[in-house]
Nucleic acid binder design. Structure first.
Length: 120
DNA sequence: GTTCTAACA
DNA sequence: TGTTAGCA
């Protein structure tokens, strides 16, 4: 199928579909015309990509993860053992990000508390 | 009408 | 990411 049908079947925009390809997440074939040709399996692949993106993984990591993951339609299961270690590192990165955001929140709270409202 | 690449009020 | 321009 060409990109138009992929848009209808995945709900993902053309722009994003091309971006996924640029990031190495999808590798559609090409017609002599230059038009992209997606495999039926790419529809499910996009669903996996979206799940991994929602998990906060960077596209570079997703590109590595996709080939080592099993998809039963509901759950994504890591197949390669080194993949689990990679995922744990990503989780740690998210933990650090949360801490930094909480630090920012704390500083803002201090500034807000010192303001006109609630400061008289 | 559909897709492509490149670029940005 | 959206959108738009200019092609094929």
């Amino acid at each position: 199928m060409r990109i138009g049908e992929m848009v209808r079947r995945t709900g993902v925009s053309e722009r994003l579909l091309r971006y996924y390809e640029e990031q190495g997440l999808l590798t559609p074939a090409r017609l002599a015309s230059g038009y992209r040709v997606y495999a039926d399996s790419d529809v499910a692949a996009v669903r996996r990509i979206r799940t991994l993106l929602a998990a906060g993984l960077p596209t570079a990591t997703i590109a590595q993860v996709l080939p080592c993951i099993r998809d039963d339609g509901t759950t994504l299961t890591p197949v390669c053992p080194e993949l689990v270690a990679q995922l744990r590192r990503e989780r740690g990165r998210i933990t650090d990000a949360i801490k930094e955001l909480q630090a920012s929140q704390g500083i803002l709270d201090t500034v807000i508390a010192a303001g006109p409202v609630g400061n008289d």
